[in-house]
Amino acid sequence: MPAVHDRGGWPTDDSIDREEHEWADWERQTQSFRTVLDSKGFMNVDELRRGIESIDPAEYETSTYFERWSASIETMLVEKGVLTIKEIDDRAKALRDRWGYPS
């Protein structure tokens, strides 16, 4: 059984959905945040991929593209001791308390 990211040839009858979603600001921000972290030596693009590949398969299947980036960036920053999970938990909660939770 191939790893969850190793998608070539997986059986599917799905046609290819060519509709583009509108990028949310947080997605643009996350994309460029990763580039800035790279420029400072905190994570290179291969580490981004390793972090994405280490996402729990169930989450990988159901998350969006930049949700996977967010998970990978977190894995790398925590692994390197740049941030702690507790710090991120607390700040994320504060942001959601402020901006609301999706219904």
Partner: peptide, 20 residues
Amino acid sequence: REDVGLGVRASRALAMHELL
């Protein structure tokens, strides 16, 4: 727009950015 809310991974990405 405050009526949309923040998903888990979105909020964590923004949290990491703010913290750094």
